[in-house]
Design a protein around this nucleic acid. Sequence first.
DNA 1: AATTTTGCAACAATCGATTGCATAACACGG
DNA 2: CCGTGTTATGCAATCGATTGTTGCAAAATT
Lengths: 337, 337
Amino acid sequence: MDSQGRVRNITDLARLAGVSPGTVSRALADSHLIAKKTRDKIQQLAREHDFRPNVMARNLRIKRAGAIGVLIPLGHETGQHISDPFFMTMLGHLADALTERGHDLLLSRVIPKDPDWLNRVVDSGRVDGVILIGQSDQIDVIEKVASRYLPLVAWGANLPGKNHCSVGSDNRKGGQIAAQHLIDRGCRNFAFFGDPVAPEIAERLEGCRAALALAGLGDSLSILPAHLTAETAHPAISKWLDDTQSIPNGIIAASDVIAMSALRALAEHGVKVPGQVHVVGYDDLPFANQTVPTLSTVRQDLAAGAGHLVDLLFRRIAGEETGSVVLKPELVVRQSS
Amino acid sequence: MDSQGRVRNITDLARLAGVSPGTVSRALADSHLIAKKTRDKIQQLAREHDFRPNVMARNLRIKRAGAIGVLIPLGHETGQHISDPFFMTMLGHLADALTERGHDLLLSRVIPKDPDWLNRVVDSGRVDGVILIGQSDQIDVIEKVASRYLPLVAWGANLPGKNHCSVGSDNRKGGQIAAQHLIDRGCRNFAFFGDPVAPEIAERLEGCRAALALAGLGDSLSILPAHLTAETAHPAISKWLDDTQSIPNGIIAASDVIAMSALRALAEHGVKVPGQVHVVGYDDLPFANQTVPTLSTVRQDLAAGAGHLVDLLFRRIAGEETGSVVLKPELVVRQSS
DNA sequence: AATTTTGCAACAATCGATTGCATAACACGG
DNA sequence: CCGTGTTATGCAATCGATTGTTGCAAAATT
């Protein structure tokens, strides 16, 4: 122990108890190799000096980290802030699920400049596994790492020909039911707000296209493929509304965040929702039924998603080669459509 | 290296390079004690085998963790979810600020059952410092730990007689300007929604009381001291509205989340806002200008707050005994008042 | 040519725990 | 009283890095 008499490691405590460090280690782990009397004495001593063994040293020795890395790759949207409501909602659910399993959550916002960002985390030895919230435009990097590192799961699209473990909703289906809903509402001209660089969004767009084609409305879709974040969506949409010749009567937003900005922009342009334009979002974030008008949207069950992510991850940590999970999206009709 | 020829540690790499582990360590750290030629060769080799030194081992040796613990103590509100918008917003800002300083963020939701929860994190050796988002009802525990552990900062109230380092707005002032604003709007009967068990909230309530007393309206305040979370606030407020004889004409909510629930409950009871009742929230979370009607509120600048928290924390890690920071709250008038 | 200086790299201790193996202490039956 | 068997503890290697000290050879100095 140091000059102040603080007990800093098991060796100090061992000296105090008159035993060897190994005995202390075993005693604190409640090992039956140590006599009950000795164990009690040592544990009591530890409590008195409120000593707790160093977790990092322990982890180094037993080769585990006790933490899961949660990464938010912001590849295609460098301006995107971590406090984006979607990420935050997901993160909250993950934190709960991981805490329940006795693991810590190591959070990193990542702006993948070099293709090494994921390796760096995986090989750092600080985490037992990694959860990606979104794939961004980093599919190739993710695939490459996933091929050699089992405990890696991602929220996002389950892409054909790709092997990494993912959990996400059926985006094509989601896009399709959104479009179909607008068709049913009588819309004939459509706009899609969102950047198809992200694979989930590309799939949602495809779903829309399929539904429109089926209804013989194949060429009635315009696309605003801007990088849409909470901050940038509103001006982008505003400008688009200014510039466009004919405002469509059905708008499909790639996320609720974008939809909310659209609602505000439309209101500012004096466009009535749902009178003149019908709007559908995607995600069903908590705020979706707080907007004006409340937002119709395609619901993804994020709590269930987080549960699956964590469950799959721990099975992979245990060595199992799990498959992916695709959740069923569900239309939630509110006032905006 | 193992049977597959993977390079797992500097010793493997040293063997490959025909040098000693120490030399590899220095080479990877770009130390000038190693000849440039040797350094280049080793770094090249490391790249080829994409080897990265184990961070945990490094941290153990140099006695630092490279991570900051961010804890959300949920003492008085066991039902409160980590995905509460306030926490999430704060967390987002913290993640950004910490990432900029090259530190990871170790997130823990804590339900303080035993008084040892904070010690456990602090003494675990996994973090270089701790940021608490909120003090909950754990002031005594926090004070005790803070007295021996310097790198600890908390978002919350700066309490008289308490010594731990805190960053927060002047809650009394905030409560006061909220109440004064309602008085100016002509309100004469008031209600406060929020549980004064949390010190910030107690201070906000005091501020209200002071303003009312000064205006000679000292006994016109009723209090709904329920544990108010996003989920529980709405039913609690609804019930309160059912039971109460006379609905007040000025409502001060202890947070925007509570205010939002109040708005919804009032609407459902057919009460016009701001026609019959004026409502003021607290925080100015991003959603505050998305509610119907948009929410008047007392703004706390959370981005600045997060910046201060991180700044103070790193100064404390460096050994400086910093003071606390009190931010000026600011009234934001929107439609609800 | 002899001596000092300089530059590079190896050696070994260290961070703080865990754990297989060796051993000491003790009890007990024969 | 000794051999055998438990039981409880100590010893020392180990996890994977970092770093002060030391040793050696080549370069610089006289």
